[in-house]
């Protein structure tokens, strides 16, 4: 049905929709986040839910204390290597469909603590991330923007076909490897199904334009 006819019908008091639209509308309008925070970003996340920024306007005010009732994990803060297995385990315990927002520099890459001895270089090494928000910490407006972005992403999902989301495709995994503690580092150090190191040409780094040190 073309958009013009649809909006014409709506003006006449007739709502025409598709199952896909209805389904996506329902999911995007009630994204319940998991009630957990790891560092200072969590304070901004809390601020985003309170009266001034009021995340409830977007249907995401119900922070659930149990992963079984949550749709969205906001990784808000520094993920230490000691905490990483618990974060992945919580993600595994969430029912599909589930989404992840990686909030702040630390959750994206390790941030200012990237070269630290106990900081994971980004949660996307273990679980798939839908929206990244840069910032240290990001303001509540940035988190709201991430919500809107995620809602847009959900709105555009197809229920059938090869591009259908993970929870509608039985072949794709919904649980991911929980890293284990070992003598020097986590094992495995990354989940290669989820994350591959982007190619960076570092051979030119540290040199000036003429190609000399």
């Amino acid at each position: 049905m073309d958009e013009q006819l649809k909006s014409e019908l709506r003006r006449q008091g007739v709502v025409a929709t598709s199952l896909q639209e209805l389904y996506n509308w329902g999911r995007r309008s009630s994204l319940w986040p998991l009630n957990f925070g790891l560092a200072c970003c969590a304070i901004e996340m809390i601020a985003a839910t309170m009266a001034r920024y009021d995340l409830a306007r977007f249907g995401a005010e119900v922070f659930r204390p149990s992963p079984r009732q949550a749709d969205l994990m906001i990784v808000a803060g520094t993920v230490t290597k000691k905490m990483a297995p618990q974060v992945v385990r919580l993600y595994n315990q969430m029912p599909e469909p589930k989404y992840v927002i990686s909030m702040g520099a630390c959750a994206i890459s390790g941030g200012p603590f990237k070269q630290g001895y106990n900081v994971l270089k980004g949660i996307d090494r273990y679980i798939p991330v839908d929206v990244y928000i840069p910032g240290c910490p990001p303001r509540p407006e940035a988190l709201i923007d991430a919500f809107l972005m995620l809602q847009k992403k959900i709105d555009e999902q197809y229920l059938t076909g090869p591009n259908r989301p993970r929870h509608l495709n039985a072949d794709l995994p919904s649980e991911f490897v929980v890293p284990e503690f070992s003598a020097h580092d986590l094992v495995p150090t990354q989940n290669s199904e989820v994350w591959k190191a982007p190619l960076v040409n570092i051979s030119i780094a540290g040199k000036n334009e003429s190609g000399r040190n």
């Binding site: 070269q115 001895y117 270089k121 020097h184 580092d185 150090t189 190191a197 982007p198 960076v200 570092i202 051979s203 780094a205 540290g206």
Partner: peptide, 20 residues
């Protein structure tokens, strides 16, 4: 520290050496 320098988009100094 463990050799996890596979992705260093803004490497310099010590980190650059480790990444290389």
């Amino acid at each position: 520290d463990p050799d996890d320098y596979e992705y260093e988009p803004t490497a310099h100094d010590e980190v650059l050496k480790r990444a290389q």
